[in-house]
């Protein structure tokens, strides 16, 4: 799999930077301002998570508080350690769902890009139209249908609908079309390799950079999805982080919202995503998205 891998780290600089300081200062300054603009609210979450309940609404927004450790202790002891369980569920849904979704999308994208078969355009455009349907509309019908099969309520009811990703299939098709040379496939067929073997040994390794992108987008999408798991799940032990944090904030009339718990929970729940972005951004290739329209 390493032989045909085409990992091109994005960070590799293509042109040697010439030391023309004057021409670089303004662009650098603008970029750093943009970066700070994007980071300010994130920095705020981490600062707010150090504040005790009393400090949250009384001290200056960006002044650190004194409650970090008691907040953390409260968070992980809430409801007998439910937060850890929610986090584990999020990892499970986003991880397993993301991997399966990526593989399903890659196989479909490859078929749609590299084979000419009856119904190809119908399949492609029908799936693509799925981008137009808001999740709010789908959640309840999906629930009612899954109930017919006795699936609603459990973890599978969140996992299965998360696998289908019109955008992921679209990306995979575009990437397969531009990255896989027809000759390699033909050569494989002449050698007598089965289609499955060609897909496994030739196609998947070539598509890996694109698949990393699809995986990351799906992982983030599933991780941050609230409505689907909220509607589907009927057992607190199956909740992902988004639904769990929601139950901390949404109480019946008269019950106080657990603000500081929700904020520290939010801060903790962003950390894995930031790590994942930092780690995967060396491998992923978002240019495949626009590649398809270049033709």
């Amino acid at each position: 799999m390493t032989a045909t891998s085409v990992r091109v780290p994005l960070s590799a600089e293509r042109r040697a930077a010439k030391p023309r300081a004057w021409g670089a200062i303004l662009p650098t300054v603008i970029l750093v301002i943009g970066a700070i603009y994007c980071l300010i609210p994130v920095i705020w979450v981490f600062i707010a998570s150090t504040k005790s309940r009393g400090e949250l609404f009384t001290t200056f927004s960006f002044a650190p508080g004194t409650g970090l450790f008691s907040n953390l202790a409260d968070l992980f002891s809430y409801g007998g350690g439910q937060f850890g369980m929610w986090a584990a569920n999020s990892v499970l849904y986003a991880g397993v769902g993301g991997v399966i979704s990526t593989l399903v999308s890659a196989a479909a994208g490859y078929a749609l890009a590299k084979f000419d078969f009856r119904g190809r355009d119908l399949i492609f455009y029908s799936i693509l139209a799925g981008v137009l349907i808001p999740g709010i509309t789908l959640a309840v019908p999906q629930y009612l249908l899954l109930s017919q099969f006795g699936l609603a309520g459990g973890p599978l009811s969140v996992l299965l609908p998360s696998i289908i990703s019109p955008f992921g299939i679209y990306l995979s098709r575009v990437f397969a079309a531009s990255a896989i040379p027809q000759e390699i496939l033909e050569a494989g067929r002449i050698d007598g390799a089965s289609e499955w073997r060609i897909f496994r040994l030739i196609v998947l390794p070539i598509m890996l950079p694109g698949m990393v992108t699809v995986f990351l987008l799906q992982f983030v999408g599933i991780w941050n999805n609230f409505l689907l798991p909220f509607v589907m799940l009927s057992n607190q032990g199956d909740y992902p982080l988004t639904v769990g944090l929601y139950t901390l904030l949404a109480k019946g009339s008269g019950a106080p919202a657990l603000y500081s718990l929700a904020i520290i929970g939010a801060a903790v729940s962003i950390i894995p995503l930031i790590c994942l972005v930092l780690f995967l951004q060396r491998f992923w290739r978002l240019d495949l998205i626009s590649g398809g329209l270049k033709g």
Binding site: L31, V32, I36, C38, L249, L276, V277, Q281
Partner: peptide
């Protein structure tokens, strides 16, 4: 800069 500008994409709505 590139990473910082991308990070908000990963922040959940809640």
């Amino acid at each position: 800069s590139r990473t910082a500008i991308f990070i908000p994409y990963a922040v959940p709505g809640v």
